[in-house]
Amino acid sequence: MARCPAALPTDHTPCAGPAAVLDADNAGADGCEHHAARLLAVLDRGRVFALPHAPAGAAHRVFKAAAPQQERLHRLADAIVTSPATPC
């Protein structure tokens, strides 16, 4: 099954609906709300906009869904950077 272009290569979850959002500069990928939220969570200063055929509120839902993921990812990044080195 084809997946939306916003799905990260390591994300094997299925798409949730049709492509509904893209980034602000048209330089990113159209994506379903599920994968767009996951992609937004890992982007630095990413923004989303609803495509013309998107359901009302699509970009807002993606933004809200990405926020909790961003917080977890930043905490994980801080833990990796600040943890003492361990031997392999």
Rank of each mutant, 00 (worst) to 15 (best):
R45P: 01
M1V: 04
H53Q: 13
G31F: 02
A19H: 00
A37S: 15
R3F: 00
H74Y: 07
D25A: 13
A7T: 05
A37L: 09
F49L: 15
A58C: 07
I80C: 04
G57S: 08
D30Q: 13
V81L: 08
H35D: 02
H34G: 00
P18G: 13
H34I: 03
A6L: 04
H60V: 09
V42E: 10
S83W: 06
H53K: 08
I80W: 08
G46F: 04
R45L: 12
P55R: 14
R47D: 04
Q69V: 08
H53I: 05
A58Y: 03
T82M: 05
D44Q: 13
A41N: 13
S83Y: 01
V81M: 02
P55Q: 11
A27M: 15
G57H: 09
A37Q: 08
T82V: 06
D11H: 11
G28W: 05
A37K: 02
F63L: 05
A20S: 13
I80R: 14
H12I: 06
P5V: 02
A6S: 10
N26G: 15
V42W: 06
A24R: 09
P18K: 11
T86K: 09
A65C: 07
P5D: 07
G17L: 03
G28N: 07
D30C: 04
A41K: 11
A2C: 12
D30R: 12
A29V: 01
A65Y: 03
P9E: 11
A66W: 00
A7M: 08
A16R: 11
D78E: 14
T13Y: 04
D44E: 13
A20D: 06
P55G: 10
C88A: 12
H12Y: 14
P5S: 09
R47W: 03
C4N: 00
N26F: 13
D30Y: 00
G31H: 02
P52C: 10
G57P: 06
A6H: 00
A19N: 02
A56F: 12
T82Y: 08
P5I: 02
L39G: 01
C32L: 03
A85S: 14
T13W: 04
A66M: 06
N26E: 14
P18S: 14
D78W: 11
L51E: 09
I80L: 12
D23G: 07
A29P: 03
A66L: 07
M1W: 06
R75H: 14
T13H: 07
N26T: 10
L51M: 09
P87W: 11
R45A: 15
Q70M: 07
L43C: 15
P87F: 06
A6E: 01
K64L: 15
C88S: 11
P87M: 14
A24G: 15
F49D: 02
L40W: 02
A19L: 02
L22F: 04
H35V: 04
R38Q: 07
V42G: 10
P18H: 11
H53M: 09
L22N: 10
D78K: 07
H34V: 03
R75N: 11
A27E: 15
I80Y: 12
L22A: 11
A7P: 01
D25K: 14
A41Q: 15
G57T: 08
L76C: 09
A58K: 13
